[in-house]
Every structure is written in structure tokens, then in C-alpha cells.
Amino acid sequence: MSKWIPKLSVLDLAPILAGGSAQDAYRRTLDLARHAEKLGYHRFWLAEHHNMPGIASSATSLLIGHVANATEKIRVGSGGVMLPNHAPLVVAEQFGTLESLFPGRIDLGLGRASGTDMRTIQALRRTLGANGAEFPDLLNELRTYLDAHPNHSGVRAVPGEGLNIPIWLLGSSDVSARLAGRLGLPFAFASHFAPDGLHHALNAYRSSFVPSKMLADPYVMVGLTVMAADNVEEARYLATSEAQQVLSLLHGRPDKLQPPVENMDALWQPQEKALISKQLDFGIIGDRKTIREKLPAIYEATEADEFIITSHIYDHQARMRSFEIVAETVKEIWT
């Protein structure tokens, strides 16, 4: 195949394991970030979620700083910050601080959804009036604060103003895709949990793209669930932790990441199995051969510039091994 190797990145939610704590999760996150850096991964992103017992990345900007301080070269950022949950000025100041501490290494990925339930939205925002329609205005306000020559009623983001912090738009539909295209921003699609809308969103992004100071051409990142092991049976066994987590969300009872099980059929109904299996089928669960078969096909279908990999594996060493197998196999495919 081509000598060109697609960029690989990591999406981490600092998963909290059954029987574990957020403190344990942060230790594993740092371990994974250092490992990813050694393996040549391009970015390490953390995602904002709230009121989720199994996710410890709610204070996303704090955790980004923690990871950036523990690594040397890998880019660190948000995948993403849910902008409607925050005042744009606060986001500008937080990421201005991060960029000032770790120059040239910080990414600001933004989502238009809440990333949580209605009660938590009210606790975060103190109002239920926001529905995503305000996202373009919030984004414009944020970009104004970060501009080198702001014009925003005398309110300035210090630090933040004039800093070159790459802004990404994230989405699971064509709404953010079209906005990213019109603004000439890079776009990341969350196909790891919403694969059905992938091709429509990518087409919308590319067809609406207008070159900007940041980008001359469209730039697409595709999110993928990948659980790799030295044999297919082990990978499928490890993947039952992710299946249990999705199942707990379907039941409205989000939980910590559970150990893998031998038989998921004892836990889910046939319709739940079909729904979760469909979501995971777009990802890659298997060994090196599975990756060599599926990843080039996904690339051909998406022409992605970058893949961002998420992997909810209960055993830490198995998770580290999974990212290692992915990185090694990608080099084998594209060289």
C-alpha cells in the first residue's frame, strides 16, 4: 500500500473500573498517554461527560493539563468540551492557560450537545433553555475572545487572546459538519457511537467547506472503537466490558466499567444485542489480521485524514497492549 500512514490518535474518557476510583482512573490515563506518545500517536484527547459513574473526565481542561504535564510531545486536547455547558469566556481563559503552559500542544475540540441528562444540564447551566441552536453564536463568541484583534465590548480573555489554539468541531450528525465546513475548521465525527450518520456528515462537511486561515482543505478525523488482542477470541472477550457499559446506558443506569464476561447472552435481550452489536460492528474487535482487513476498508470508505481510537477495556495491561497492536499493525499496512 501507499507509504503514507494515516495519523492515529487516542480518545480517553478516564474510565472508572468496578471496584476502583477516579484516582485510579487518572493513574491509568497518564500511563496510557505516555505509552501512546512512545508508540507515535499524534493526539491524546479527553471527553467531557457528567453524572456518569464510570467516566472521570468531567473536569476536562484540568485533566488535559495533568496529561500534558506528564508527557513531552503528544498533542493533548478535548474531544470534546461541550460548549453550551460553559461560558465562552471561561473556555477561552482555560485553554489560553493550557496553551500558555504547553505551547503548540493544545487542541480545543468542541461539541454542541450537553453530554449528559436533563437534570445534570440544569445543574450545569442553571437553565433548560439551551437546545444546541445557540451553538454557532457561542462558537463565534469564543473565537472572538481568542482572536488577536478582539472586538468584544472590552471583555478580553487573558490568557487566550491572540493564541493559536486549533479549534475542532465534533459531531454525530451533519449539523456541526456543515458549520465546520462553512468556517473552514477541522471536523471529527463520533462514529464510535453513531456510525449510521458518518458518510452523510462527511459528505456535508466536504461539500460545504470554505478555505480559511486555519485550513486550505477539509480535514476529517473519524472516531473508532478498536479492541485488539493477540487472538480474536481474547479481543471479543475483552469487548464484553464495552458491551456491558452500553447496555447500562440503554437501561438508564450508567455504571462503572465492568470486568469482561464469558456470555453476554445472559445479560441482554435479543433486541439489545442487535442494537449494541450494530454499534460495535463499525469498530474493530479482533487481532492484527482483523485490523489489516477492516481498517483499510474504513479508510477507503471515509478517506479520513486521521483515526482517533477509543478502547474501553477493563484490564489496563490489555488496554495498553491493544493500542500497541493498533499502532504496529497500521505501520505494517501502510508501509
Rank of each mutant, 00 (worst) to 15 (best):
P15I: 03
R34N: 12
G132I: 03
R27T: 15
Q23L: 10
A190H: 01
V67H: 03
S100L: 09
I325M: 03
R321L: 13
Q271C: 10
L62V: 15
I291S: 00
Y314N: 06
T127A: 07
I276F: 03
K256A: 02
N51A: 10
L170E: 05
A68K: 04
P15W: 01
R43I: 03
R236G: 00
D12V: 02
A36S: 06
G160L: 09
R126G: 12
L224G: 08
A68G: 08
R125D: 04
A274W: 06
S207H: 14
F187L: 05
E161H: 08
H149I: 14
G104E: 03
A56Q: 00
E300Y: 15
Q271W: 14
W268F: 08
L250P: 00
L183H: 11
E332P: 12
P259W: 10
A123L: 06
E134H: 03
T29D: 04
A133E: 15
G162I: 06
W268S: 13
S57Q: 00
G79W: 07
S100V: 04
D117V: 05
M1A: 13
G197P: 13
L179E: 14
A68F: 05
A92N: 06
N231M: 08
A194Q: 14
K294D: 11
A92P: 05
D12T: 02
K7L: 11
E332G: 09
A266Q: 07
A14K: 01
